[in-house]
Design a protein around this nucleic acid. Structure first.
Lengths: 205, 205
DNA sequence: CGTCGCATTGATATCGCTCAAATCCGGTGG
DNA sequence: CCACCGGATTTGAGCGATATCAATGCGACG
């Protein structure tokens, strides 16, 4: 959920935030370090990654401008993932102490924070729901229906197709083939970076 | 996250809750209805389900005793899924109005609520991470590592194997075969309803 | 005792993954 | 301006893991 929809945060945090510039591949924090800051991505992209011993790498989040990082870790003692800028980026940050103080002192701030956590929870659960679908086609339709705008569920692809594929639990090859197939079968339309359902759907399902 | 770890909730809510008994397959609320209550499962199991037009059914949550229902929907105007008891169950509920009042008036209550939302968010994201793994084996190992207790990551299977399979994004047949294979290869141990890693693992990964 | 749902196991089909290669595109430097 | 380069996209071929379909056994419950 974009922080920009919650301007209260930026306003209230204003006095506490510092600005930080990151180069590509630069680390923001590491697994096991205590969470000292709440981060807000202003430009670029920061990726939350977890590694298993076998070298497999799972991307937990690819935070784009307007998103928060690791907001669920405010009350934990250790970060559970690495944060790395995937391109030159700018982040704002406030110390967790300042943040906790604001939560305690400013009821409006706390209310917004709860709404944001709830919204994040809804989108995370939507993602679980999406990944529970078995076929690539269904996942794509689900993505459009749950994140697309308007009656055609239009959605702009930000970043690379590879990244979209990963967030759908697919390889980029599979995603590409599924998109091509669905376009051929007139299930979806694709113009440049915009995807949409070919036929209008009502949004209840 | 079990509410029982947050006794504050039950205490503070005590004056507002009513008790409700549900038979198998009885509906608690439906898609599109305004959320009037916060629900807490005391006994049994309540399932949150979404249906697509094609009749596919996705289980969003299978709430067991100690869990809350639809906590992310406090500030939405419509429920986005159906809630159905999957066996005879008992739920406690408080009206959203009472709940909102408590959030506004009781800072400790609000603090606990934020901690609970954050915990839910972490578990939802862990589930996303798990579903992003490609093989059944990896998902099982991930489940044990992230939800198992102790150095062997022991975990009790609650409910049916079918339900566990669904939560892992597998069919029950595949799950069964994967468990048998891993048991044969001494990767996991299985005694009745308890699963564990056969060899100790450090928990960092 | 019959039925129903779940667990277990087998046979086969299918979809997405892997490996491989060609093309496209933006950026960079000569 | 053009040649070159690296990364992303697109397409192909074959394989493997999981889904699907099917059958049997088992335990709970009426």
């Amino acid at each position: 959920m974009a922080l920009s929809r919650h301007p209260l945060f930026l306003l209230a945090l204003q006095p506490c935030v510092s600005r930080l510039e990151l180069g590509t591949a630069q680390q923001l924090f590491r697994v096991g370090s205590p969470p000292r800051y709440i981060h807000f991505v202003e430009e670029g992209a920061v990726r939350l990654v977890r590694h298993s011993r076998q070298g497999e790498e799972v991307v937990l989040q690819d935070a784009r401008p307007g998103e928060l990082l690791a907001e669920a870790s405010l009350d934990t003692s250790r970060c559970h993932c690495d944060a790395v800028a995937s391109r030159p980026s700018v982040v704002l940050r406030a110390t967790t102490a300042d943040f906790q103080r604001l939560l305690a002192d400013d009821p409006d701030f706390a209310r917004s924070w709860m709404a944001l956590l709830a919204a994040q929870l809804r989108t995370a659960r939507a993602r679980v729901e999406r990944l529970s679908l078995r076929s690539a086609d269904e996942r794509i339709r689900h993505l459009l229906r749950s994140e697309g705008q308007g009656s055609r569920c239009e959605l702009e692809i930000t970043g690379a197709l590879k990244d979209l594929a990963r967030s759908l639990g697919l390889t980029h090859e599979s995603l590409h083939r599924a998109l091509a197939r669905m376009q051929r079968d007139r299930v979806i339309a694709r113009k440049g970076l915009w995807l949409s359902l070919a036929k209008e759907k009502d949004l209840r399902a």
